[in-house]
Write a protein that binds this DNA or RNA. Structure first.
Lengths: 252, 252
DNA sequence: TCCTGCACCAATCATCTATTGGTCCGCATA
DNA sequence: TATGCGGACCAATAGATGATTGGTGCAGGA
């Protein structure tokens, strides 16, 4: 399987490995960990980011598979690699499944349609968030809101705003809803849509949005789901109005 | 998924066909069209909504494949069916690309989490639906509700119920929300989840659900979005309660 | 106590085969 | 001529099979 099959690139890696590192060591476990870590950080692996199989690594490093697995466990908890049964071990972060779906609808997504969808989903998320947020969570939200309100430039403020809404979705603690929101979030970042939104950012609206953000977080802190949903709805409606106005302006 | 092989259910359909309709006619093309159309509208087809293959239809109707294809062309332009090369011909609307995403979360999806997500999304969809449904749309919804209430067996009733909720999502007319709903819908069909739901179907609940379906559609017909959302919420809460009860029962 | 070697399971991938819709052509019949 | 039947072929898909890969447990040795 090394010469002809899809594993050819492993050979390149393997040569580099046997040349650079010494497979023999007193403490096999630590040595294996260090070797694999270095292998990832030097980036000497195929384009997929795919590492050799555990059995191959064990053979190359001259240690048992169990030892290799312990090393990989460490790297996995560090977030350096991710594994999938039947598929393999890969360097970097696991892929986001929502991205591909979003690409399907993003091209012809009308900003107003996206806003309508946000008005459907995000108030419900704020409601759930209010029911489940811990004190620590609320603190995080406040920090994000502060960042979004600081008058650096419109672009970074926009990023912190997105992070705030995303945090609310995450704290809501429903995996299915989180995936739905991720889908929405990806679509929202469409190119034309982003361009149109830029014009809707002024000093007045910034202070208005900051006020609304605080309303939402206050309601969440009070564990008042209804109020949180209402505040979120008001916020999104303000965004929507602003968007409509800027779209009309750009048409004239 | 009914008998042993994947094609067993076609036999059931075929029997009904040869009994009810006369394959012989003076004008084969028109007769074939009428026969297939009737077959779709009476709903006598397997759970997937899959029609027999073109070759089977030709043999059953006693006409050539070319004639069958012309009839199917007509039905396709009418939006009654959709076809996919290598896969088959299906009744209803083509599916959204959300399936792949759903498969990611489906395995470890807690039925209660799914219900919570439905409670977030579907009332909002009912609201939008009320704002945009035409008279024709309402008529379709009523037809679906009738089908879901007919006491055939719990399995097919469940299918028509799903079709009703899906139709509401489609009529809501927001592509992003439709994709989000499709995601939810796919997750809902997880295997264990389906098994647990079976126990929650009794004669009493069926009549309750029928009443709630009619409440939803009535509100949609009155263009009362608030009421439609509330009715949908009540319906889903009833489903949720029933689910919880059946889960507790199965634990003891 | 730590590591190795081994066996087995479950998920996935690669591959092949059968099926299915899409298309074209020749022929028969009215 | 027009319509329809029969057949052949292509491209895309589904189903089934075998190999590969990570996940797990167990026995034995240093």
């Amino acid at each position: 399987m090394i010469g002809a099959g899809p594993m050819t690139e492993c050979y390149v890696f393997r040569v580099g490995l046997t040349v650079n590192y010494a497979p023999e060591s007193t403490d096999n476990a630590a040595a294996a960990l260090a070797t694999i870590r270095q292998m990832i950080e030097t980036g000497k692996l195929p384009a997929n980011g795919r590492l050799p199989t555990e059995r191959e690594l064990a053979a190359e490093l001259g240690c048992g598979r169990r030892t290799v697995r312990r090393a990989l466990d460490t790297l996995e908890t560090e977030g350096l690699i991710w594994r999938k049964q039947g598929s393999g071990t890969f360097a970097g972060q696991p892929p986001d499944p929502a991205g591909a779906l979003a690409a399907e609808i993003a091209p012809d997504a009308d900003p107003l349609v996206v806003m309508e969808a946000r008005l459907c989903i995000e108030p419900a998320l704020a409601d759930l968030c209010a029911k489940r947020a811990t004190g620590e969570d609320v603190e995080k939200l406040r920090k994000l809101a502060r960042r979004a309100s600081q008058p650096l430039d419109a672009d970074t403020a926009e990023l912190w705003d997105g992070a705030l809404h995303r945090a609310i979705a995450r704290i809501a603690g429903n995996r299915v809803m989180l995936t739905a929101f991720a889908l929405l979030d990806e679509v929202r970042m469409g190119a034309e849509w982003q361009e149109k939104r830029h014009r809707a950012r002024t000093a007045e609206t910034m202070t208005l949005y900051d006020r609304q953000h605080r309303d939402i977080i206050d309601a969440i802190e009070r564990r008042d789901g209804q109020a949180a949903a209402a505040a979120m709805r008001a916020h999104l409606e303000a965004l929507s109005e602003n968007l409509k106005a800027s779209m009309e302006r750009s048409e004239t």
